[in-house]
């Protein structure tokens, strides 16, 4: 029980840290990192609750996390590409 609370708690802390960083920082890269940390927190939480109970762990959350990682990396790639586009325009000015 303690271990789950430990890992789950870490997930929640990661999420909150991400939110904090997202709100406080302006730069795109930092926001993107913040979002990824947030996402990692949620995924971490999922994996922590999957491990609850006896082995083997619940595969459903694992699959969800896999899907989530793909989604997160897609969004990150798009966001960074858009950011680059903006910077290019600024540089061209």
């Amino acid at each position: 029980m303690t271990a789950h609370l430990l890992y789950g708690g870490a997930g929640i802390l990661l999420f909150v840290l991400g939110v904090w960083s997202f709100l406080v920082h302006e730069a795109l890269l930092r926001k993107v990192i913040a979002l990824n940390v947030m996402g990692s927190g949620v995924f971490h939480l999922l994996i922590a609750i999957a491990e609850r109970g006896s082995l083997p762990p619940d595969p459903v959350p694992h699959a969800l996390v896999l899907t989530g990682i793909v989604v997160a990396v897609s969004a990150t790639a798009l966001a960074l590409a858009m950011g680059r586009r903006l910077e290019d325009e600024d540089d061209a000015r």
Binding site: V70, V71, S74, A75, A77, L78, A81, M82, R84, R85, D88
Partner: peptide, 13 residues
């Protein structure tokens, strides 16, 4: 979703 991200990136230039 992955495809959408790629298409979005392609549309940017």
């Amino acid at each position: 979703v992955l495809l959408a991200a790629l298409l979005g990136i392609w549309s940017l230039g």
